[in-house]
Amino acid sequence: MIKTENLTKEYNGNKAVDSLNLEIAEGDIFGFLGPNGAGKSTTILMLVGLIEPTEGKCFINDIEVARNPLRVKEIIGYLPENVGFYPNMTAEQNLDYFARFYAMMDARQRKKRIEELLELVQLDGVSQKVGGYSRGMMQRLGLAQALLNDPAVLFLDEPTANLDPEGVFQYRKLIKQLSDEGKTIFVSSHILSEVSKVCKTIGIISKGRLIARGTLEELKTELSSVGVENMRIIVETIEPMPEITHGDIINAEYDETMRKVVIEARSDIRDYISSGLLEKGIRIREMRMEEPTLEDVFISVYRR
């Protein structure tokens, strides 16, 4: 459905996107994660035909975007980051203006579709001009304009930015509904929690290059082996414990009673700890290793 081949975009000799190879299946909700300036928006702009790649190609439904931008725009929807509208027009007028560019919509169809969408994003009955909208309302209107042509592929750039919690909840519900309808959804964000809540697969981009790709669980496993080097082991005992010594321990923080310690270590030394305490007759109440969160993994990867 969405495919890129060595997609590259250079600005003044700097590669904003560097040989990106990506394939996203039909019906997938793909989360495109990366820090600010990683090349997410530039990739989307090439995929929606707003900028041309310096090298490489991208395809939507096997249509090459750079060669047939209009054919691609007929089947996609795009919510830009910080979406903008004509402030002197109402939401309905803005949507009607954009809808007129689609060949398949006559006046009656446009009116019906616009009414449906405004209801969907809860902007029906709002008669004020868009210039008076809050950022959240603009974002919701942006989602409506992206859905005008009932697109097969939807590109959403930072879709939850500016939305209030209720708006975010409605957005997630809508994405699930659209996915159930068989639409392919490409969500770009730098907020991991947002992507992990709605996306089926995730790609991580850093400095213009795709550094990881897979489901949430696959990524966690893949990245934790390379991304986070240190681990945290928490030990609680019934009796006060002596200080634990091991070559891999980087740091250990004991509480005042010496019954709890948080150890930061280079390797999993839980066996060494348990046998050492057992030898000294100290009963262990709890011992666990805190797995790195996906957030920790990503931060670690981004910083590399």
Partner: peptide, 13 residues
């Protein structure tokens, strides 16, 4: 107003 990006994302040359 950032409307240009919205406009050009629809099928118009």
């Amino acid at each position: 107003s950032r409307s240009l990006k919205s406009l050009l994302s629809h099928p118009v040359f």
